[in-house]
């Protein structure tokens, strides 16, 4: 197991270097000259040439790539092509914070609905309540964001005027409610599904029967033995939910006008702002890879049986 983790740790930087190279390569395949884009209608051939030289765009791809990696390791991710004079880090930082808050709010919604409901459904297995919960959750899960977002806005913002229709003012403002619901409801459906499955698994274990046999109260069994153990696999899911904030809330950020990370990456793709895009993709990959690693390592710590294999 230790060897496995060590190999993973060694492979991770290589993986990130390859991912970064891929985005770099896409930047050269993409149409449009960043220098021309940046100069806009002030672009004369001489100016474009000078700027290209300045930005190092005339260097061959491997050299540019090495240069990028070199400065990235020092924490300098370069300057945006589109937002003049802004460093990539200064663009990403505040937006990352916004997306993080949005996704934390959404996860709170998803967990507080999903876990109890999944647990309850498992407890009611064999009655009509269980399939009713499962199917209605599946209906919510399949509901496209294109539907939830506009209709929540129309109903709660335009018609009832309970909350503002768009914008962002931190996760504790009323503006956060609708977007958090939009992401949280399908998320809750996923948690219900997994919580139900893992609760059923735990209920079937012998130690639960033992607990019943020795006369423990149902409350203690449910909360100390069943729910706690059933929650373990859910941690994995939670890890990925938080790692998935890159692109995961794309449509929601767009429709609600939230200045988050997904919105930034979409703009960067459309405006060919490749320094920003490279940094974003890299950051997203780092989060995903780290989530995977932490989950793998976490499992071996939580469940000693895995270590023996």
């Amino acid at each position: 197991m230790l060897v496995y983790i060590l190999r993973r740790l060694l492979w991770t930087p290589v993986l990130l270097l390859l991912a970064a190279f891929f985005v770099f390569f896409m930047g050269t395949v993409a149409p449009g000259d960043p220098a021309e884009l940046r100069l806009g209608n002030r672009a004369t051939p001489e100016r474009v040439d000078r700027l290209r030289e300045q930005l190092g765009l005339n260097d061959p791809l491997p050299i540019r790539y090495m240069g990028f990696i070199g400065s990235a390791l020092k924490g300098d991710l370069g300057e945006s092509y589109v937002f003049q004079g802004k460093t990539v880090t200064s663009l990403i930082g505040p937006r990352l914070l916004v997306s993080l808050q949005l996704n934390i709010a959404a996860s709170i919604v998803a967990l507080s609905v999903g876990l109890p409901l999944g647990f309850y459904a498992a407890k009611r297995q064999g009655t009509k309540t269980d399939p009713a919960i499962v199917i209605s959750m599946l209906i919510l899960y399949a509901m496209p964001v294109f539907f939830t977002a506009p209709f929540l806005i129309l109903f709660f913002a335009v018609k009832l005027h309970w909350v503002p229709a768009s914008g962002w003012n931190g996760m504790f403002s009323t503006q956060a409610i609708l977007p958090a619901l939009t992401i949280g409801i399908p998320g809750a459906a996923i948690f219900v599904r997994h919580m139900r499955a893992s609760t059923l698994e735990v209920i079937g274990q012998e130690y639960i029967r033992t607990a019943h046999a020795k006369g423990m109260s149902n409350f203690v069994i449910n909360y100390r033995h069943v729910a706690r153990n059933a929650f373990l696999p859910i941690l994995t899911l939670l890890g990925f939910t938080l790692a998935g904030i890159f692109g995961g809330s794309l449509i929601v950020e767009l429709i609600y006008g939230i200045p988050g990370i997904s919105r930034l990456s979409l703009d960067a793709i459309f405006q060919r702002d490749f320094p920003v895009l490279t940094a974003l993709v890299l950051l997203g990959s780092v989060m995903l890879v780290l989530a995977n690693l932490v989950i793998d390592i976490g499992y071996t710590i939580i469940d000693p049986r895995i270590r023996l294999k």
Binding site: W11, L15, L16, L18, A19, F22, V23, M26, V29, A30, P31, G244, F246, G247, G248, L250, S265, L266, I269, F270, L277, L280, V281, G284, S285, L288, V289
Partner: peptide, 25 residues
């Protein structure tokens, strides 16, 4: 390894990136 590199990207961003850059080509 190829698969791992690809799945290190956030799905939807990769799809959009590919579509946006490859379309003109």
């Amino acid at each position: 390894r190829i698969g791992e590199v690809i799945s290190a990207f956030p799905d939807i961003l990769l799809i959009i990136l590919l579509a946006a850059t490859l379309r003109p080509r």
